[in-house]
């Protein structure tokens, strides 16, 4: 295409439509353009392509900002994290002063600034653990759970006793999933709970709960085979939801679960 431009260089025409020419240069280019039909076509094509791109992408900019991205919310979460981490650091000092380990402590202090990025490996392995549990138990026909969920309080109390935290199972029936029950799982990073839900057609999803996590994260998603995993860390607990559903259904479930535990922690 550049071969066609003899009088006017492509760079000039480019800079013209991008408003990057100095006034004198611009005057020259504009006046040369008047006598160059080829260049005129070229310029109007560039403008048309640019405008098509702008129009195609405009709707995103017009969308309302999602709550989790509101600056005030991100800032609040960040402050909450750093407060929490300060508490954690004090606890670590107390623990470690008994048995040395200053190197580890220094390491902890160093990584505090970039916690969100460094924790991803740990949370990734939690998600992986949840996926393994899902694959193991969701295919189980006779013993999918240890404790059935029809007596909701009993399940909640049992989990609270084992995990040291009340995590009442969310009601997912508006999204077509009934609570089957739950089980307690050993995990390399501590004890976790696995709740299982089932739809009328037999589809199963699991919700993995692992308290004792520092930091917070946005909802992240992974896929492995048919299974889709969405996980996030909020208010000291890692939540992992796994199922073979499409993304929008998984997002709807994640949203409902997130809101359930948000409301729960505010109430408690």
């Amino acid at each position: 295409m550049s071969g066609r431009r003899t009088v006017l260089r492509v760079e000039d025409l480019q800079a013209l439509i991008d408003g990057q020419l100095a006034p004198e240069r611009r005057a020259i280019v504009v006046s040369d353009l008047k006598n160059d039909l080829d260049a005129q076509r070229f310029v109007s094509q560039l403008i048309a392509d640019r405008d098509a791109l702008r129009t195609a992408l405009a709707p995103i900019q017009d969308e309302p900002i999602p709550q989790r991205l509101r600056a005030a919310n991100v800032e609040r979460d960040r402050r909450r994290n750093s407060r929490w981490l300060a508490v954690q650091a004090v606890a670590a000092v107390v623990l470690l002063s008994a048995g040395g380990g200053a190197g580890w402590l220094a390491h902890e202090a160093a990584r505090r600034d970039s916690i969100v990025f460094d924790q991803q490996g740990r949370w990734g392995s939690i998600a992986e653990d949840a996926l393994r549990a899902h694959n193991t138990f969701s295919v189980e026909t006779r013993h999918p759970v240890e404790v059935f969920g029809d007596t909701n309080d009993q399940l909640t109390n049992w989990i609270a006793k084992r995990l040291g935290r009340r995590l009442p199972p969310p009601d997912l029936s508006p999204l077509g999933f009934a609570l089957l029950g739950g089980r307690i799982l050993p995990s390399p990073l501590g004890t976790a709970a696995l709740l299982m839900y089932q739809a009328q057609n037999g589809e199963r999803i699991t919700l993995y709960l692992k308290p004792g996590e520092a930091g917070e994260t946005a909802i992240r998603s992974l896929t492995s085979g048919d299974a889709r995993v969405m996980y996030w860390v909020d208010d000291g607990c890692a939540y992992v939801i796994t199922g073979s559903l499409d993304r929008s259904r998984m997002e709807a479930l994640s949203g409902r679960i997130f809101e359930h535990f948000e409301g729960n922690s505010r109430a408690g």
């Binding site: 405009a58 991205l69 600056a71 991100v74």
Partner: peptide, 27 residues
């Protein structure tokens, strides 16, 4: 934020969650 979301979505198209990228950026 609206501009950041637009850029992230257009840049990532099909390669990941644009809002995750925006959130990491804001943090």
């Amino acid at each position: 934020i609206p501009r950041l979301r637009r850029y992230a979505a257009a840049l990532l198209r099909g390669q990941g969650d644009a809002d995750d990228l925006v959130q990491d950026c804001l943090e």
